[in-house]
Amino acid sequence: MGLRVENLRVYYRTLRGYVRALEGVTFSVADGEIMGLAGESGCGKTTLGHSLIYLKPPMNYIEGQVFLDGQEVPIWDMKRMNEFRFRRISVIPQYAMNALNPTRKIGQLIADLLAAHGVDFKEILPELKRRLDLVQLSHEVLNMYPIELSGGMRQRAVMVISTLLNPSLLIADEITSALDVSTQKAVCEMIVEFRNRGFVRSTIFITHDISILYQIADTIAVMYAGQMAEKAPTEAILRSPRHPYTRMLIASLPQVGVRYREERLRGIPGAPPRLLDPPPGCRFQGRCPVAFERCVETPPFVEVEPGHFVACWREI
């Protein structure tokens, strides 16, 4: 069944008014799907990830619905969300390496966490050990303090902990951006492995790096200034992007093999609109080379081919 998000609107309350961080976001993630969520800084991808698990002030829930496996998720209710968090929706935070309490041993930490969710540590220990083997961590780490592990090891430990109760949805928030390329690859492959073994069902992998998503994601969703611009299977979005923003974004990526002397890449002129008072309609219109009168109305996010969604008047 997977995850379905409908018309989600989340604003940040600031002294100068609402920052419209998520404006009518609609999408779904199927069972077993790894959905990559890409976009530039400030596009709302991290806000989206957070609002699905931990919507806290100054974030303000305005409207919209979230369904997980057919059941409504009360993301606006911090208390009721407790039964979803960790058990059914889990997150690997951006600075996972620093997310561990430094005064507890890893094993105690896991036991505490499980106890808080009413699970017996002893019962789950064999499975825990199997998973540590999988990410190439020795069982010794359970008796170690976080500080005794290297950054990469801590990252892997957090990955195991986050997925221990086989959540239906895993949100990985920029987990590779602080890592070296070699470690990056290992972490990405583990995410795929977790999915393949059924530790998690659906995954949302948030990153600004589309080339990483090409390696591991089944589908890629691209956000722009708080709105969903395009979502499609990975090959489709990279080979035949439909939204002008996606097209320009992909064309601007330097790939190994492309050289300035042979091929000049181009960026996207202009800057994203301020989300405090964004223009009405499509938020990309100010930078869009093919914008026309209709773009002052908000384009719907429609399926133009099976599994390929676009929010652009030119494509409808």
């Binding site: 530039e40 800084s41 990526l253 181009r266 960026g267």
Partner: peptide
């Protein structure tokens, strides 16, 4: 960000 990054690279070249 990716969209502005290339322009700075081109400038260097």
């Amino acid at each position: 960000d990716a969209s502005t990054r290339v322009d700075v690279l081109n400038l260097l070249a």
